[in-house]
Structures are given as C-alpha cells and as structure tokens.
C-alpha cells in the first residue's frame, strides 16, 4: 500500500504536463454524450452496487457511503 500512493501522485503530475491546449470552441466532441465518463449513469451505479456485494476490492469513489450489509 505504501508504494501505491507516491506512484499515483507521480502519474497525476505526469498527466498534467503531457496535454495539448484545447480551446472552448474545439470541445464539441468532448461534450458529446458518448464521451461522458459515465456514458450510462443509471446502469453504472447499479453495476458498482452489484460488484461490491460480490467482490472484495475497494472502491475509488469511497465517499458514496451506504450500500448496506450485502450479507448474502
């Protein structure tokens, strides 16, 4: 776990550096629905609920809370 944190921060910084400037009027494609990070938001939420009751992995979106026992 101790290795993971600094590595990720390094990646964050790297990502900032290596990108092109995109003017507001060039962002048409980026704003299209298929490019939304959650293209189908209703189903995305449902799927992550199903996975967390089946798998032991942690979530990166941990501040969502709730979820219940999932004791089956």
């Amino acid at each position: 776990m101790k290795r993971l944190a600094p590595l990720s921060l390094l990646l964050f910084a790297g990502a900032l550096a290596g990108c092109v400037h995109v003017e507001p009027w060039e962002r048409g494609v980026l704003a299209s629905p298929q490019m939304a990070l959650d293209a189908m938001p209703l189903q995305g939420a449902l799927r992550s609920h199903v996975y967390t009751s089946r798998e032991a992995a942690a979530s990166v979106n941990a501040s969502g809370g709730g979820g219940g026992c999932g004791c089956y």
């Binding site: 964050f12 900032l16 092109v20 962002r27 979530s59 941990a62 501040s63 809370g65």
Partner: peptide, 22 residues
C-alpha cells in the same frame, strides 16, 4: 473514506481520469 480524482483533457478527442480511494 477519502478520495482524490483528477480529470484531464488530453486533446480534442481524449479525456483521462485518475482516482485514488482510501
């Protein structure tokens, strides 16, 4: 819980998202 996320437009056709959760 704590989380940190960075979303970055790479170019006109690419978006990258990185996240950490604890």
């Amino acid at each position: 819980t704590a989380n940190l996320a960075l979303t970055q437009v790479i170019d006109r056709e690419t978006v990258l998202d990185m996240a950490l959760g604890y």
